[in-house]
Design a protein around this nucleic acid. Structure first.
Lengths: 154, 154
DNA sequence: GACATATAGATGCAACTGCATTAATGTCAA
DNA sequence: TTGACATTAATGCAGTTGCATCTATATGTC
């Protein structure tokens, strides 16, 4: 049996990373959507704004935390504002800026999405891997993506 | 130090899978685009059509191999046809169907994209992981995504 | 103050995705 | 043959992304 070259191993990881991501994200998105809840990207914003007692945040802060491009965030906030989940407030001391704040509805939505989201991830990712492999996988993926603070809960 | 629960480990993997995927795909797409070459999704089609001596394929076949939705493939083929990379040929024996075939330009493009693509993946994914970890990672990701035939080359 | 420059955020445009539906053809049973 | 049903592919529409550009405000320099 031929020796597999390093480049082939790298490509192997590439292909499987794409496939695994595709499958997992699709399943989680579908599960959340099936309950009539908004997409993951919306949840990420809700979650970020819920941290530390729901303080106001500048779009720039959100951008950095969520790794979303400025123009995408701008329009995501448009849609979330239209849906009544967040408010844009003029930024005191900087006429260019704004503060983003959850509405009561937004806070409620975050609490409502969280269990659906958590369960979907658990059911999608949980069954395939024993606990030992989960740790190992997190470590290896971390080596690729760089380390970040863990996902938070309610 | 508190014991980390299984659910937290699962969420940990979820977050890192998303981050790692995001980083790697962005870098590879950017590298390929920087050379004026078409996106990865286009390359996947070119590659699939290049296999086995560039035989014609039905959109349905492509759909299954590439895991692309029917309506997305239909329009991707529109764009690739407009770009002169593929041809749609009426399907003998099935008036509903069609055969997709690479043009000479499409074949040339596949050969031109491949090295850029391979190098980009290598440079993005290679440096972070020793060979031993590559094998382990491929195995773990395979457990999530299901196994598939490896990515091919020129 | 007047100017150049930097920063925060929005927007026009094209590509792409998902969803629902449609049009055209094929298949099969009566 | 005909009519019900299945299959192949396209399409209208809305949401989302990337890119380039634009507007408005801030900041620093003279």
């Amino acid at each position: 049996m031929a020796e597999e070259k390093r480049i082939d191993k790298v490509l192997h990881v590439w292909v499987r990373l794409i496939r695994a991501h595709d499958k997992v994200v699709r399943k989680v998105e579908a599960a959340v959507k099936a309950k009539g809840l908004p997409p993951i990207a919306w949840y990420d914003v809700l979650l970020e704004l819920s941290r530390e007692g729901g303080r106001r945040m500048r779009p720039l802060e959100l951008e950095k935390e969520l790794l979303v491009a400025q123009y995408n965030l701008s329009r995501l906030l448009d849609r979330m504002e239209a849906a009544g989940l967040i408010e844009r407030i003029a930024c005191p001391g900087d006429g260019r800026g704004q503060m983003i704040q959850l509405t009561a509805e937004g806070r409620a939505m975050q609490k409502r999405v969280w269990p659906a989201y958590r369960d979907a991830v658990e059911e999608t990712l949980g069954p395939d891997l024993p606990e030992k492999d989960l740790e190992q996988l997190a470590k290896l993926l971390g080596a690729i993506g760089g380390h970040l603070r863990p996902n938070a809960c309610d």
